[in-house]
Design a binder for these strands. Sequence first.
RNA 1: AGGGCUAUAGCUCAGUUGGUUAGAGCGCUACGUUGACAUCGUAGAGGUCUCCAGUUCGAAUCUGGAUAGCCCUACCA
Length: 883
Amino acid sequence: MDFPTAYNPEKNEKKWWDFWIAEDLFSSTPDASKKSFTVLLPPPNVTDRLHMGHGLNVTIQDILTRWKRMSGFNCCWLPGTDHAGIATQMMVEKSLQQEGKTRQELGREAFFQLCVEWKDKNGDIIIEQLKKLGASCDWNRQAYTMSEGLSAAVRRIFVSLYEDGLVYRGERLVNWDPVLQTAVSDDEVYNEEINGNMYHIAYHVRGMGEAAQIVVATTRPETMFGDTAIAVHPDDERYQAFIGKEAQVPFTDRWIPIIADTYVKPEFGTGCLKITPAHDPNDFEVGKRHQLPRIDILNPDASLNEKCPEFVRGQDRFQARETLVRGLKESQQLQKTVSTRHSVPFSDRGKCIIEPRLSLQWYVKMQPLAGPAIQAAANGDLRLHPDTWQKTYYHWLENIQDWCISRQLWWGHRIPIWYCQGCEAVNTGMVDPTACSSCGGTELQQDSDVLDTWFSSWLWPLSPFGWPEKTEDLAYYFPTDVLVTGADIIFLWVARMTMVSLYTQQKVPFRDVCFNSIICDKEGRKFSKTLGNGIDPLQVIESYGADAVRFTMIQLAPLGGRVKLALEDFEHGNRFINKIWNAARFLHGKLGDRALVPVDFTALPLPYQWLVHELHVATARMDQQLSSYQMHEAASTLYQLMWQSFCDWGVEVTKESFEGNNSASDWQIASVVYWVFEGILRLASPFIPFLAEELWHRIPVHPQWERASSLVISAFPTPTHVPAFPEAAQQWSRLQEVISGVRSLKSQMQMEKKKDIVLFLRCDAAFRSLLESQLALVQKLSGVAKVRFVGSLQEVGACLANVGPGWSLYIPLVDESQIPKEKVRISAELQRVSKIVLGLEKKLQNASFVQNAPSDVLVQTKAQFANMSSQLTSLQESLASFG
RNA sequence: AGGGCUAUAGCUCAGUUGGUUAGAGCGCUACGUUGACAUCGUAGAGGUCUCCAGUUCGAAUCUGGAUAGCCCUACCA
């Protein structure tokens, strides 16, 4: 077989992806005889393009899914996309803008159609990118939040909630995005500190003499035309006389009351607060308490409307601010300007400052839904990983606010509410009403708003499986097993899915939720378009291959943390891929393509039993690590098994003990080495599926591994598959210590090139016979020509020394010039060991330790003391021998 | 302001119920290639586990406090 010196990921990844898809290995149908394993892919927006966050998120899910698939589960990893109301509408509007058109000119229906076309053309780009990473989703089930079925589910849940009295319409202050001209939810708003000014403005007061005035402090003078009161703290002695009087809104004839409310903090600013109920959430509450009118002074684009004096009317809010500040200066009402840093709300979507705005919106009453969701986490039905997120989850649910679900957009699920033009009654239902349910009138007008995108996303555990119908899919796959997502959408998405699943199914949507790390640059800043510090995963895949990208990310990223990633880090995964490829090349070259024979494990030479044992230990470890979602730890276990155990020791031993002469021993060696290698490939398959598949098809078929048509559906090794040889493993590792001990001496004394070294060994009879049983191998691996066993140092003469548990090894000096260096080295070693011995001695002399420590710890400590003491003695002898 | 997280080698981080001489990768140093891999190997240097106090026979690990950094939530007229 042709075995190129370099691995070609690009060619290989395409080959095997096509094979897996052609063989339909990732699809799933309900099968009562098998256990299901269901994972929900967090649906990317149709506007998304693959970034490293997706990369890590998808890699984690793919590892879990592939592991479970190889472990015999009926795996359904459900893929799909989200229609992304705001993001998509922005995209389409942008392209319209380039043609000099607006959506208003186009009209609602035509614009909607344009969005559909945009989605058809661009909506699957992200999906194709996920496939490049090797995502083993059930691609036959790809779902879409605006598809017919999923839209029916949205309609169903809206109507159900409405009928249960959980959907209502209310006038509230919403977070208004003046650029997109829509309300956005609290969760789509972020705060940022900016530099601003605090303006101290004097309002004239009447009934207290000519010059009477009251000074308020505000950062937003432009909202003054919406003022309907001035508030002071009821206990603030400075302002007692003002309470109940009236003040004049500057530039107007409007007089507003001065009221007392405990919300005001006397120590802040001037202690006087202007109350603008229509433009500030806190003022809205104060206004409610005092039955103040609400004056909306802004247009939808945040310019000042007709309720404002003519000289600022039509000006943008920030422009108006400057105009007013100038005006107030002229009228000497601006007492001072203090520069300040304060945080202001920004729209996550429009990236502009949010304007609190009074409007009629649809809401979902959340409190009744939140209770069961809290319960589910408390009783362990829903588990978060890492579980530190539980507190955050509880805190949000316990203080939950009603969810504003209407959006003033055109792209999305239109709110299924019809207003009767005759009697103003509200109609809804599963079919579009033709007549008013209240008065029978036929003049019905549908609400012009659409639903928040998350109002369809929260059904993701249900709607793709056919809900609200009682389908076989739903019964089999729901509840799902694990959700992997970013902690930033714990409220927007995770908690809401939980609530709606409990509401409709009385079950949690998933058992476990894993929060993947956030990917940052080396300075710890999040990847962002504006910073331009991101790494394009597709480019990295192009240069290193998907396997290298996957492996690098997974080994670097624990759950729920923050991972600092740079382009050069992908060298790490790349090297690992190269290492495995070359190990396979070595086996191919050294052992050939021979048909393999069953391995008689119990009769294997010591180092091979050790190797099998290493595989055994790794399978146990990986099983435990994957089960507890420690994917990065499992990746490290795999890495060490492959590199240290298999390559550095297994392959090196094979080089020395495989004779190439068709002996029975050769057949056994070839068979066990390939057997272990196949075991490692199987363990590696979930992590680096493309390379593993390629090599699996290249290695000879082994009679002791059952083979399917593809590695991805072959069995994942568990500790029961792999025999354990703890004793042999322990013996071989003692010999490894001797080998390392010799290498260390040779290296430090720069004797690598010397081939005729005689090694003198002082040890007990048991160790001697162990070593003699592997004599030739130990000699070759440590690079000595001969081993002599001695009873004392005197038998050797002047020499270099190294000590270990139960043995001392000596190499004769080449010449006297080595002595000073060796004396320094031994002295340092002596110091280190004597420190340990002293510590142990102190411990053993401590009566309360001897009394209280568990017996096994005591035994261990005593043994260690004996061992280290003898090493100490041996070192002292060596040092003394130099005189 | 409230809540949470983190602090271990020059860098990035492991260290799962407290118990061998605290580990890995990268980086660094020395040596080693006539074929698995220089995308490599062997060996080495480098840590009073942020600080203080406490619990314990025993603390990187548990408790309290301090300091520093990060994140979240709320709000700042």
